[in-house]
């Protein structure tokens, strides 16, 4: 078929409703790179996209947003270690132990593997705890860093019984000799130290401060950069402030 004959099929093809044999012919023809028809189909897509104009507006329920964001939780498995990941890591450790053990003292290797696997299990437990906090209905969440030019961004979750969970991205690892300190700031009071943490090489951080929190009396959660041992009161400008 000639370009002229194929032309009637551009829009139907763009909508995925062109039937054979025209569809196969046009597809092959486009595959051969005919400039006229490629441009024609592109224009047809534009024209058809304009039809969205005729759709009456309907607002989606607010829960849909939460649901969609929750469904990409896979990405957060960087922070939220899954049992499978722990299993894989453990088997890597066992393999490392097996090979390294040929050259080094078996006892030292064994001790190292045990320490590392304990750390992994502790990490998994910490992450499970964080997940549990996230899933509580009474957990209040606030975001921070939105709209700032090169911000640490993220969320703070506050649960009256379980504590405060901070999830941050874009937070570069604290330089040597320094560490991040989280603060719980009561309304009209001085900041209360809420633990030290470090972010990973990709700038992701998760910090959980366990214990009951008086949510109504809390004004904000903040993070400062402090000397390695932490400080009783902030000594620098906060990098993160999440007002509750």
């Amino acid at each position: 078929m000639s370009c002229d004959e194929l032309r009637d099929g551009y829009e139907l093809y763009a909508l995925g409703v062109l039937e054979d044999p025209e569809r196969s012919e046009l597809r092959e023809h486009l595959g051969r790179g005919c400039e006229v028809c490629v441009a024609g189909v592109k224009r047809a897509r534009e024209a058809m996209a304009v039809l969205a104009e005729t759709v009456p507006p309907v607002a989606p329920p607010p829960r849909l947003r939460r649901r969609i964001l929750a469904s990409v939780g896979v990405e957060r498995s960087r922070w939220w270690v899954t049992p499978m990941w722990v299993g894989i890591s453990l088997s890597c450790l066992v393999a490392a132990f097996y090979y390294a053990g040929r050259e080094h003292s078996l006892g030292i290797q064994m001790a190292r593997v045990q320490t590392q696997s304990r750390q992994l299990l502790e990490e998994a437990a910490r992450l499970n705890e964080a997940l549990a906090l996230l899933n509580q209905p009474e957990t209040k969440q606030v975001t921070f860093g939105e709209g700032a030019p090169k911000p640490p961004r993220g969320r703070v979750f506050v649960n009256p019984r379980q504590g405060v969970l901070l999830l941050a991205s874009n937070l570069p690892p604290a330089p040597p000799g320094k560490i991040y300190e989280m603060w719980i700031i009561p309304k009209g009071g001085n900041p209360v130290p809420a633990g030290l943490f470090q972010s990973d090489a990709e700038g992701a951080a998760m910090h959980l401060r366990r214990g009951p929190v008086d949510v109504a009396a809390t004004g904000a959660v903040a993070v400062t950069l402090e000397a390695e041992g932490g400080a009783p009161q902030p000594t620098s400008t906060p990098l993160i402030v999440a007002a509750l």
Binding site: P57, A59, P60, R65, I68, L69, E75, R76
Partner: peptide, 19 residues
């Protein structure tokens, strides 16, 4: 970046839902 998905939804979620 998970936050990018949030922004994408805020930009086009209503349109996509209506359509």
């Amino acid at each position: 970046e998970p936050e990018a998905l949030a922004e994408l939804y805020d930009r086009y979620g209503r349109l996509a839902y209506a359509l």
